[in-house]
Amino acid sequence: NLFRVAGDMSHLASIFILLHKIVQLKSCSGISFKSQLLYLIVYITRYLDLPWTPSPYNFIFKILFISSQLYIIYLMARAYRPTNDPNLDTFRVEYLLGFAAVLAVLFPVRYTVLEIFWAFSIWLESVAILPQLFMLQRTGEAEAITAHYLFALGTYRALYIPNWIYRYVTEPTHKIDTIAVVAGVLQTVLYSDFFWIYYTKVMKGEKFKLP
């Protein structure tokens, strides 16, 4: 449906915006390496079913997300490493990994290796942006391009919510993927503050600056 496709396009756009920023400005300043590393873990643990993906659409996106995220990690860890300030990126990711691991082991859809990793990736994605938002809070402001990246990334999961409602209404099975929905709502809520500042400042041509 339209919400789902728009969400995935927004996700893809966010990655292109981030890559554009890093390559064009030859700098990854303002970007949390920890959040980016968490996203790599998210893609790898979620797409373990890559060889059995029935839909070519999903298959292509999975390849795109894993490969582009590997490239982002390479750029941040190798090519533009000096532009990355670890002193600003101090969020304790152990808590996020622990949170996702506990929920994944306690409430997977089924007790299979793939399902536990899938649930882990869903919970981890829901909170993976926290190191980035924490960094933003420490610096108090962000480049416009970084704000656009975060807006596109947040919009992706927000658009999945109307997609789930649409699917629930239109599909005869009325199936709800509880883990994905609860984690997806949590993920969107974490962005709400950012969305508000983006709307009140960046969309009106001002600099992204925290009050």
Binding site: N58, T112, A180
Partner: peptide
Amino acid sequence: WRGDAGHDEL
């Protein structure tokens, strides 16, 4: 070890 809950979203 394959799960089969059929997650069809990204």
